[in-house]
Computed example of a mutant assay.
Amino acid sequence: MHTDRFEAPFALARRRDGDLVRTALVAGDRIRDLTAAELGAPELNAFLSDPDWDRLAALAAADGDWMPLSGAVLTAPVAPRQVLQAGANYRQHVIELVAAGLTQNSDRTPDEARAFAAKLMDERAAHGEPYFFIGLPACVVGDDVPLVLPAYSDVHDWELELAVVIGREAFRVAPEQAMDHVAGYTICNDITTRDLVFRADMKEIGTDWYRAKNAPGFLPTGPFLVPAPFVDGPDVNVQLALNGQTMQDASTSDLLFGIPALISGASQTMPLLPGDLLLTGSPAGNGQHWRRFLQDGDVMTGSIAGLGTQTVRCIAGAPPRTAAG
């Protein structure tokens, strides 16, 4: 059930109704299902390809079969065909990571290491390119289901992120046109199993994002899709609390590569499709920083200004079955 607010006049959501998932309109503390005729499209991704926000604004202001939002069970507000994720994209976070390594492996003082790292990041922003990897759409879930922590590791980590929801298809677009392809924004928590990020059996091949980030439910998303006209994506606060204690707290204004650069860069390889998710990176303050990882019974509360709040409850996964079992 959801009582958390967003600041926009209305937003989209997807509501569970028994075994069905229905596209819904949320306005204030009310929610109502949307028929294809009301949406003006056969399904949500088709609507996002050419969103008519004026149509939904009129519905949000009209009488209808509204229900209390507090009684609704919401799932992920989108059903993406592709999920792209940006890595190492918060400037200050990366500076601190690089500086920490330099102070351990060189004669630089902490201030000298941070200054050197800042220069590296500024050069990367000016002349480099965003770093992307891909996630599995099947991992996208709502916070209506608990996060099951696989028993094969004790180092499952959180990474709260602003997620761009693609609208009109984007293929090899310039940064100047990139924002024309944004339908809206939502919240994603990019769960990562830290001890699987690098292959122990063959370090030469580098990172293994498939195993580290793609267990069932590892992309809690939503609960709302807020239209782009209502969100200042380049400057919103991203905050995650673990059991009530703030662990991440930053602004997207610190992104090394901003949203237009990310959309443009990702679209150079493969078309971004309506409803796809593009995660923009996660700020400092994950479990690896705090040396504290997710445990059975933990509750993560992820908030992004203007997008509401998601609450994810963690439960321990079943131990792996033995050959005899």
Score class of each variant (00 low, 15 high):
49 S>D: 12
52 D>C: 02
291 R>G: 11
128 G>I: 09
285 G>C: 06
159 E>V: 04
194 R>F: 07
248 Q>G: 06
87 G>K: 12
13 A>E: 04
320 P>N: 09
215 A>L: 10
319 P>D: 13
166 I>S: 04
142 G>H: 01
31 I>W: 08
72 A>S: 10
80 P>I: 03
281 G>R: 01
292 R>M: 06
322 T>M: 11
5 R>H: 13
52 D>P: 06
28 G>Q: 05
12 L>W: 00
291 R>A: 12
241 A>W: 05
169 E>W: 03
79 A>S: 15
119 K>S: 15
241 A>M: 09
287 G>C: 04
233 G>V: 04
107 D>P: 10
39 L>A: 00
192 T>H: 03
305 A>K: 11
22 R>L: 11
35 T>H: 06
39 L>H: 00
67 M>N: 12
15 R>A: 10
10 F>Y: 09
115 A>Y: 05
250 A>T: 04
132 F>K: 02
85 Q>Y: 10
68 P>R: 07
115 A>F: 03
278 L>A: 05
14 R>P: 05
266 A>D: 10
55 R>A: 13
184 G>I: 07
102 L>C: 06
112 E>F: 08
188 C>L: 14
56 L>W: 02
224 F>L: 03
232 D>L: 08
197 V>D: 09
169 E>L: 05
134 I>L: 15
211 R>A: 15
173 V>K: 09
68 P>Y: 07
5 R>L: 13
59 L>K: 07
290 W>F: 14
132 F>A: 00
142 G>T: 01
126 A>S: 12
